[in-house]
Amino acid sequence: MAPIRTRDAKHASKESRPESAIKKRKGFSVGPANLPDGTYRRKTQKLKSDLIQKAKVKKAYAKIKAEELATQPKSVYATADEDRTNEDADPASTELHPDRIAMLNEPAPAPEPTPKNERRPRQEGQGQRRERKPRESAFKKEMEIADQRRQFAEAREKEREAKQKEREAMIRAKRPDQFGKRRLGRESKALLDRVQRIVGQS
């Protein structure tokens, strides 16, 4: 009969395995692995580096905290509790300390009056709220340009109407009267209005 093997290759311990056979842990990944070089890839790389940095800081903090807790002495309350349990202390007496009794027997000092904040008398115009300056509109320039255009258009419209009235007046003035003669008075009035308008513009 063949001897029973104590160790089989399948059941070999980790120590006996060569280091190349031990599977290395893969690092964590953020985002898809097949991103082209660009904005999204750089963003995922930044997120990953931030996460690694935060993990390192947390690890260092935990290490420092553990060292501090190990070197820190026990709290005063914990030591007092231990002392109380270890020693058979007398029950607490109900008598007051002599200093406390002396302090209670002294007459209480009169409280000092708190100084009132004296207000300065209001001068005229100070009591009222300060009027806010009107805030300049963001479209002030555009509104001014629009006003100028509107005024220009109105002026053109008035001029057009005045010319139209002059034409109509001139046509009426040139009509002959019932005897077939020209009406020079009407013509002269229409011409005078026209001259006044031209002189007024210039």
Rank of each mutant, 00 (worst) to 15 (best):
M1W: 01
A2L: 04
P3H: 00
I4R: 03
I4S: 02
R5Q: 07
R5A: 03
A9S: 04
H11S: 07
H11I: 02
S13C: 05
S13Q: 06
K14I: 06
S16G: 03
R17F: 09
P18C: 14
S20N: 09
S20Q: 11
S20E: 06
A21D: 15
I22N: 05
I22Y: 06
I22H: 14
K24C: 10
F28E: 09
S29F: 09
S29N: 12
P32A: 15
P32V: 07
A33M: 11
N34E: 08
P36D: 12
D37T: 07
G38R: 13
G38T: 13
T44G: 12
T44Y: 08
Q45V: 02
K46F: 14
L47N: 11
K48P: 00
S49I: 01
D50M: 14
L51F: 13
L51A: 15
Q53K: 13
K54N: 11
K54Q: 13
K54T: 12
A55Q: 05
A55D: 09
A55Y: 01
K56P: 00
V57C: 07
K58N: 12
K58M: 15
A62H: 03
K63I: 08
K63G: 04
I64P: 00
A70E: 15
P73C: 01
S75E: 04
V76C: 00
V76P: 00
Y77H: 02
A80K: 06
D83H: 05
D83Q: 08
N86Y: 06
E87W: 01
D88S: 12
D88M: 05
A89V: 04
D90K: 11
D90W: 02
P91V: 05
S93N: 08
E95C: 03
E95I: 08
P98L: 14
P98V: 10
I101Q: 07
A102N: 10
L104H: 02
N105W: 05
A108N: 06
P109C: 04
A110L: 10
A110C: 02
P111V: 10
E112Q: 09
E112F: 08
T114G: 06
P115F: 03
P115G: 03
E118R: 07
R119P: 00
P121D: 14
R129W: 02
R129Q: 04
R132H: 06
R132T: 09
K133V: 01
K133R: 14
R135C: 01
E136S: 03
S137F: 03
A138C: 01
A138D: 09
M143L: 12
M143A: 08
A146E: 14
Q148K: 08
Q148W: 04
Q148F: 09
R149E: 03
R150E: 12
Q151A: 12
Q151T: 08
F152R: 12
A153Y: 01
E154S: 14
A155V: 06
R156Y: 02
R156N: 07
Q164P: 00
K165N: 09
K165L: 05
K165S: 09
R167L: 14
E168H: 10
I171M: 15
R172A: 12
A173I: 01
A173G: 03
A173P: 00
A173D: 01
P176N: 04
R182D: 07
L184W: 06
L184R: 14
G185Q: 11
R186P: 00
E187G: 03
K189A: 15
K189D: 07
R197T: 10
V199H: 10
G200D: 09
